[in-house]
Write a protein that binds this DNA or RNA. Sequence first.
DNA 1: AAAGGGATCAACCGCGGTCAA
DNA 2: CTTGACCGCGGTTGATCCCTT
Length: 306
Amino acid sequence: MGRSPCCCHDAGVKKGPWTEEEDKALVEHIQKRGGNVGSWRGLPKAAGLNRCGKSCRLRWTNYLRPDIKRGNFSDEEERLIITLHAGLGNKWATIATHLKGRTDNEIKNYWNTHIRKKLLRMGVDPVTHQQLPPDQTNHDVNGAAAALLWAAAAASLGGLDTGALMQAQLLQQLLQAIGSNNSTTGLIANLASANTVLNSSSSFVPNQMNYLQTGYLSNNSNFAEQHVVQQQLTNDTSPGTSSFAAAEPADQLCNTAASYDVAPAGDWSPTQEFGGLLEPMMELPGLCSLEGDSFWKDTSEDSYRL
DNA sequence: AAAGGGATCAACCGCGGTCAA
DNA sequence: CTTGACCGCGGTTGATCCCTT
């Protein structure tokens, strides 16, 4: 598609933080038109602003719009964001439509600066909402055994041949580990642990969003044991198989999330980071991660080509 | 009190989608 | 069908704030 450069590339168009005068000019212009912006491209000239139309739109939608709610996010809002993100992924604009007065940019920032870190501290992958192996929780690398575990899980999930996939994953991760200066001690220990799991993993299936299970949220000293517990938990429920994303009415999730009451008391557990806000999702068996079977299948196929 | 480093968030950038000519 | 214009989105950047040493 042919595409002319944005007006932002014009020489002399102001960038950077907005001044009070500019804000005032933009607000007055839009108010004068009864809130109807019309063409953003033509707006700066009409409003007497030396700004790109895009910049004006951003300033208006993210900051100056009268219905914007500013200030800290409530627990309920956090809860909602996590729930929606679990199903929608980084669809910030879509998520924002379910949080009155919040902008996509604000939610995105809040996710990246607060929620994401909390999830990582809990050992939860903020992308997939699945638990991370403990070693990945604390270290960036040393992931060979973890990769084995997840490869096994993936292969088991899709009924795939685990051999080539895991060899490729292992090779890749070992190369990473060697490339880094990490000690190999933990790596070897985890490989042993992974091997134990793999040897008994014919029905080993990662529970989607299984960090929501109380078993995980309590003290998890051993990753392999943890999955045995989880497998039992999984057997007691009926895991959903459909992808939540666009199909699941988000309002239902909102209602579910909003109806929940506070976290159980007890010894410290990662749940305390959220004051129990994750628990509502336990009531959503249909939720699953973004990466469905096809994701893992593609990963597997890529591995075969290595 | 000053320096350094991490956290935060407003703003920018570039791409994809859509629509009209 | 192609091209160009525009909008909106998600990822990223960088200025500023805040906390620690």
